[in-house]
Design a protein around this nucleic acid. Sequence first.
DNA 1: GCCAACGTTGGC
DNA 2: GCCAACGTTGGC
Length: 189
Amino acid sequence: MPTRKKPLKSAQRKPAAGAGPWDAALSPRRAGEKRYWLVKSEPDTFSFDALLSLPGQTTSWDGVRNFVARNFMRVGMRKGDRVFFYHSSTNPQAIVGICEVAKEAHPDSTAFDAKHHGYDPRSDPADPTWFMVDLHAIERLPRPVTLAEIKRTPALAAMAMLRIGRLSVTPVAPAEWDTIIALSRTTTA
DNA sequence: GCCAACGTTGGC
DNA sequence: GCCAACGTTGGC
């Protein structure tokens, strides 16, 4: 009798058909298409300045333990994509900088480390559950664009970061990206 | 497969 | 510090 192997997790789940308004972020790309994203970090834990102070201004974005956020990283993000760096749980909450995807998704090693708070005993090193991308800081925004400002800007009303509460990785539409860049070049009222 | 309990995120 | 919104877990 042949040995039945446990199917790979990656083969178990088919993408849900019409899963939601964020499918576009995971869909196939046109040649040369660049996409945009937003990641959150609590500045007390890891700030944009902390990233700028690292050698190479690059870090592995580990610790994501939500499947939707993981899929945005693993399926959605490609090298060269631009990423807003958002400071959460601080005053004021704001987008403060720009990164780019320096390395596409690779297994999140912290999930295998029993001493790490992100340890997940169910993540099999041979078929990892959790992934991380490497982010390289490009530049600080001319000024932070606050959550309050995002909320009161009509062109940003559909932003995933407002609609999918508490998700640490979200897609940003190109027009939203441009709007936020333009806001960051204005002076606050 | 349902759903209550629980944990986490993050705005306020 | 509170709590709403969700995701996850586990009993049934």
